[in-house]
């Protein structure tokens, strides 16, 4: 296999703020590689540092340590002017859309082209093409205040794409939208990624967004990179606390069960088509208690986890574990899970 250079490289990236005399570490020693054509999700709880991280990618925030290498250019070695020039090749969309309220849709889309010094007639032509891509050709002369949230985000996407960027950064781009609109915006992003080959970096706190469209994911917790890998791997077998917290959401009910053995079964897309639990109960002739279950469809394959409370009889419990293992399930005993 050929070694492909990553499009975006974060190297030992760190960011500190000084706030009222105290130093706050927003990011610490982040190393990430994002390859051309990826849809890369960066997920974390609010305050984890993911917004700072995405702003470091285009140097809206200058990292205090480490650097960012974009397409071979080390940003920390570039002048302000060179960075501005480089930003013209990185589109960015935001949670609050950030459209110019006193400009109509067409002029909003033309704005990055104005900055890049493109001639007026070319700008107009390009904005019409983009409006077609985002499905808003009839809204060219409308003002942002006349549009819905989803339409505003479509305009923002068109604006971000106007300079034909290689990279599109999305900062919580769907967090202000309802589920249906979120879905349509995600489909649009996916389509753009496929058709135009743009590398997309998605910052979000919503698992569903990552599941829906990302190929790879990185989990940011407390300013540090907790875990990264393919979406399938990270979500079906989270290794760190931060990842588990995100994958299992809320598991207070599990916490109340004390002194019992628990196991977690992972459905990895292969075995979800057969009724595993029902067969197991019939086979082992014993009861289990389902403490937690969360299965979902990720890109056509079924994934999920289930936490089972085993019977007190250790022979029966071992029998269940063996049954599952024999059926090629990923089984993990959760000794520390309940106490």
């Amino acid at each position: 296999m050929l070694a492909i250079e990553p499009l975006i490289q974060l190297i030992d990236l760190g960011k500190e703020y000084i706030s009222q005399g105290a130093t706050i570490v927003a990011l610490n020693d982040i190393n990430l590689e994002i390859f051309s054509g990826d849809i890369f999700g960066i997920i974390g709880m609010s305050g984890a540092g993911k917004s700072t991280l995405v702003r470091c990618i285009n140097f809206l925030e200058k990292p205090t340590t480490g650097t960012v290498v974009l397409d071979g250019n080390d940003l920390s070695l570039l002048s302000e002017k060179e960075i501005r020039k480089l930003r013209q090749n990185i589109g960015m969309i935001f949670q609050q859309f950030n459209l110019l309220m006193q400009r109509n849709v067409e002029d909003n889309i033309c704005f990055p082209l104005e900055i890049a010094g493109v001639k007026a007639d070319e700008r107009k032509k390009r904005s019409q093409e983009l409006l077609e891509i985002v499905g808003l050709s009839d809204k060219a002369k409308s003002y942002p205040s006349q549009l819905s949230g989803g339409q505003k985000q479509r305009v923002a996407i068109a604006r971000a794409l106007s300079t034909n960027p290689k990279i599109l950064l999305c900062d919580e781009a769907t967090s202000a939208l309802d589920p249906t609109t979120t879905s349509s915006i995600l489909s649009l992003l996916k389509e753009i990624n496929k058709k135009l080959g743009i590398t997309i970096v998605i910052i979000t706190h919503e698992m569903s967004v990552v599941e829906r469209i990302c190929d790879k994911v990185a989990i940011i917790d407390n300013g540090e990179l907790a875990e990264q890998g393919s979406v399938e791997n990270v979500f079906s077998n989270p290794k760190t606390d931060a990842a588990r917290k995100l994958v299992y959401h809320n598991n207070n009910a599990v916490m109340e069960m004390k002194g019992k053995r628990c196991i977690r079964i992972v459905f990895d897309g292969k075995s979800s088509f057969e009724p595993v639990i029902a067969n197991m109960i019939l086979e082992c002739r014993t009861q289990v208690n389902i403490l937690f279950a969360d299965t979902k469809d990720i890109k056509g394959k079924a994934f999920g986890q289930m936490v089972l409370q085993l019977p007190e009889d250790s022979i029966q419990a071992d029998k269940i574990i063996n049954y599952l293992k024999n059926n090629k399930m990923i089984v993990e005993e959760l000794i520390d899970y309940v106490n």
Binding site: I83, R84, R87, M92, F94, M101, Q102, I115
Partner: peptide, 28 residues
């Protein structure tokens, strides 16, 4: 809105451009 200014910065706008094309028109 600071977000709009940030958006202009993300497009590579210089300070004079932001003043003339974002700050003043948006505050009109």
């Amino acid at each position: 809105d600071n977000g709009v200014i940030e958006a202009a910065q993300s497009m590579g706008a210089s300070i004079p451009t932001i003043i003339l094309k974002v700050l003043i028109p948006e505050a009109k």
